[in-house]
Design a protein around this nucleic acid. Structure first.
Lengths: 215, 215, 215, 215
DNA sequence: CATGAATGAGATTTCATTCAT
DNA sequence: CATGAATGAAATCTCATTCAT
């Protein structure tokens, strides 16, 4: 029946073995239902049904509905932040003579894939974190420990190599993060106005970031 | 007691006179509670209490809780989208010899003010629109009729004036929208990483958009 | 239909007027059901039904089931402990030349009436207090402030009047309380072995306490 | 680790050999949990855990939770009622010239030891018997067959020996039972008001019962 | 015979909505 | 037209009991 699995689902299926099959099914169902309806609008009954387990079983694993929300953070870390951490420590693998243009395009396309692959999980966690300070703290911590340092290191290296003007690392970091976020959000929310065409748009985005729009 | 009112509250207080006083109080309370807790987590009882009316009265004006959400769209339009429309038709007021740099800075600072002034309303409507297609359609329509045309017109004029390289209007539009959105979201969500300092950051943002980061 | 009301029910019906009729019905139903089945075995659905209200209404007044248990303490105080307090302050009304025998018989018969009148409430509160320290503390405090002092004062007066041998007030107090408690519990639990016949038994009890059983 | 065992636990450990080791562990755990929390508030899961067996095993031995409660009656009989029966038939062991005072003190101290030794079991069974008629019947039957006859025989003998005034055996029995019960309950429930000091208090209790309080 | 994951019936709790006053 | 007590449908949570392994 179900042949195609999302990256998120694959991540959960490949999780630690002290996570039972039923638990995995519950997590997958939770992502599906919650990313479609939001945390509060998702019914434990519906999640249980989608997971093919009884509501009692759902309770066995997650005594409070909120626990189910919090349980989605580890898979998110595994699927979204782990690759970033991994990449940070295997930087040496990158082509030594990589140009700035190449680096930026690589940054956008890899990060975009991560966003795409974790759409559902990210949607739940980010949106709910707006109202749950604990979740927000977790996300802030993760970003501060993974994405921001890796991004800033790249920028500093390029400044050292004199490929980038001497300017505030934070400013450049903000510009790049804004473009990534903006591209992702705008093309999701206004697909007619901003259709998605990654190759073309990343190219133009990078070109403008590098050379500006001024004639 | 309460002397300082938010722009949103001022907007509602100045609304049409066929909106009764009680109704206005309810809307103001709804914005406060819903922007703090989200639509679903907000209790009609709490909104009524905050508004200083009975729950019965609340339901006289808004028979369904959802009606209360939809009722927030008009104030949002009045306060956020109306100024943009107005500005579009009063373009003549702008200094004729306005430079590209000035135009961009003006765009960012005016739009940022609008975002700040309508934080609460925007938060509610945007976040809820993710789960309510009707709301999403409304927002898409409003953006398509106001923000996007005004932005694109500015870009086209600047291209015609040859201040901007010959390039896709949509691409430039996306870049600018991304920066605006990114600046706003990132400094709200990661205030430590990306502290807010509008004058300085708008300046640098515009500089990079104009000239790029390449040395 | 229902003509005879228990003293407990009368107490609740005569409670403060800021207690609504529905709330009173709920409390009466709670006493009936809980004294019959115990707190945990009592179903909120059954209490609501017995009270003639919806479960929603029950929740309006007592958000947690436990609140309903704790709400029974005030009526108990009113009905059981208030008379004792009142009596303490109207001691002067007692016949001045009251004999020891008369005092003891009066003590047993009045206290026994109180126990009888508050059977249900006492049963709930006492039995549940065994497992809820908060309740136990309340009962201990009430006894320490009302029953014990009034009892000890009577004993001391009788010792001063040299009607009672010079002996520990606590010991006499314990003897009297034990008889009261024992008479009440034993005749409830073993009605065949210890049938209840207040006039006769109080007489004999007092006689033995006064003169002993030794020939 | 655990060196000190309660009398109840010793009783269970020494029970009949057609009671398996696991069963004994379950019973001991049941006493611990149930005497702490009460029957209904005790979770089968918690009892199983405390007993070091699986819930499945618990239900193999006691298919219904209530069976676990009823299974506590035999140990109670063994530990509490058996000694009383035994004593009844070994009356000859008592010193022939035992005085009334001695007999009473012996009665109180031996019964008090039994109560202390079986605190937990008694608490569970007595409290639950209030809501379970079957249990209440059992307790009534046991008391009627053991405690009451032994007590009444002692009283009758003392009346025959003319150590006690000619009076109703039941009345004297009730007085003695009340004092025993009262001493035990009051010093458990109000340890501050009625501190426990067996030697001293039994002495004074017996003295009053024998000679009264009248000067 | 032991296990403990899974169950589901039923308990409590929630809260938008109604309606008599 | 305003009130807020009352509602009940639906949600979450509980836990004794079952049963495949």
């Amino acid at each position: 029946m179900e042949i195609v699995k999302t990256v998120e689902e694959e991540t959960i299926i490949n999780m630690d073995d002290n996570v039972s099959d039923k638990e995995k099914k519950i997590l997958i169902a939770a992502i599906r239902i919650m990313s479609e309806k939001g945390f509060r609008a998702s019914r434990t009954s519906e999640i249980a049904k989608e997971a093919g387990v009884s509501e009692g079983t759902l309770f066995r694993y997650y005594p409070k509905k909120k626990d189910l929300l919090l349980a989605l953070l580890p898979p998110l870390i595994l699927s979204f932040f782990q690759p970033i951490i991994t990449e940070m420590f295997s930087k040496s693998n990158a082509p030594k003579s990589s140009t700035l243009k190449y680096e930026l395009k690589h940054f956008f396309s890899t990060r975009l894939s991560l966003l795409d692959d974790n759409k559902g999980l990210l949607k739940i966690i980010i949106l709910e974190s707006i109202y749950y300070p604990e979740l927000q703290k977790s996300i802030q911590k993760l970003m501060t420990e993974t994405v921001f340092p890796s991004l800033e290191q790249m920028i500093m290296e390029q400044i050292e190599k004199k490929h980038i003007k001497k300017m505030s690392v934070t400013t450049v970091s903000r510009i790049l993060m804004s473009q990534l976020l903006g591209y992702f959000i705008l093309s999701s929310y206004f697909p007619d106005q901003y259709p998605r065409d990654d190759d073309k748009e990343i190219n133009e985005m990078v070109d403008i970031i590098l050379n500006g729009i001024k004639r």
